[in-house]
Nucleic acid binder design. Sequence first.
DNA 1: CCAAAAGTGTTTCACTTACACCCATGA
DNA 2: TCATGGGTGTAAGTGAAACACTTTTGG
Lengths: 229, 229
Amino acid sequence: MPATYDHPRAALTVDCAVFGLDDDGLKVLLIQRGIEPFAGRWALPGGFVHLDETLEQAALRELREETGLERVFLEQLYTFGDPGRDPRERVVTVAYYALVRLGDHTVQAATDARSVAWFATDDLPALAFDHDAILAAALNRLQAKVRYQPIGFELLPPKFSLTQLQRLYETVLERPLDKRNFRKKALALGILQELDEVEQDVAHRAARLYRFDEAAYRQKLADGFNFEL
Amino acid sequence: MPATYDHPRAALTVDCAVFGLDDDGLKVLLIQRGIEPFAGRWALPGGFVHLDETLEQAALRELREETGLERVFLEQLYTFGDPGRDPRERVVTVAYYALVRLGDHTVQAATDARSVAWFATDDLPALAFDHDAILAAALNRLQAKVRYQPIGFELLPPKFSLTQLQRLYETVLERPLDKRNFRKKALALGILQELDEVEQDVAHRAARLYRFDEAAYRQKLADGFNFEL
DNA sequence: CCAAAAGTGTTTCACTTACACCCATGA
DNA sequence: TCATGGGTGTAAGTGAAACACTTTTGG
């Protein structure tokens, strides 16, 4: 390491793969780039890291600026830095993935984004840079993580039915689950709070609603409990 | 994103937590810094990323330059970038962890490293920068990963006994394992090649030697096999 | 012949999986 | 009364964990 840090420097960005869930399945939030390179192409929201903010703050700021999203679950994914991933010059990007409750937010294009939209993860347009690789990594991580950590709740409304929860897992894991076994296991985790409420406005028997019990989760986590589903 | 990438830039480094195993337990390779900041302090080997190399290449190059190590198992860990983690200016570091067979290599200090040494992971000196946090994350990752991916072989000589393998797992996971169950499970993975050789020069019955069967591993991996131990 | 580690099976228990019917509600 | 999804239990099978003695070898 030189005594002074004076040398040519790569540019540093953050990019976010933001996932949401609706009746059609898993969605990812993309922006349409307003500027070169790749103007007009769809891309993950992201941008340059400022010198006075953490990487996570940069990711949250870019999300807010480009899409209007706030208060999302966010976790660092991987850092992509191959020379050539940006056609102009060396750019290293720290990728994050985020989970949001789709109903909570309306997205809104801003700054350098021409527009913003949700895309089904199994029907994506061509993406700018190496964003297809980043997105694939993010999907992998989500699938792996959802099995042993209850992060899926971040995709659901605060109150949900067991059927909704099951559909979430089926969607993310891309395979059907047995209803009775799923309910047994989900309840056995001991982190679901049964509410005295049911679904509204459905044309059949209304399902009981539950809430994710954060306190119970922290407790069990500290006790070394295993949350595999 | 501005149309040109002209703005103040953070410096970008890589750092490596290199693990090895000997009879005393798990070791990590540290260098003693020859220059400021933190001259004289122990630190993870690492350094600045060049503009024309990948992040992984940078990590391998720094390892070679500072410690003489070559051909190691290397995997990206996490990117640390809080402002203030370097006392002089903003430096973002992409951390890697590596596994080596301790017997294979003799390490050798070079470039900016005053000296190089292996330290027991449970008896570490004060480290430079936030390297204690990086190292803690690396240990966590190693523990988590060794359970479901057979990376532990990277720490053993090419030919090893089942007892050696068991001791490796016990060391990394920090808990005793049942001998019979361990052997049953390890062999059931179907990725150990039984050799017609035994240990040499031991003062008791000599143990049969095995080899990690890379081909069988790849095959089973492709078939979706689960390698949890 | 003693010390030291290698090697080997069976039983028990817990968890996973497969599976089908009645219930409540609104239209 | 019909259509729609909500809700429930049991039996069989599979994998994990606990556990102790005999064998081999060199000193």
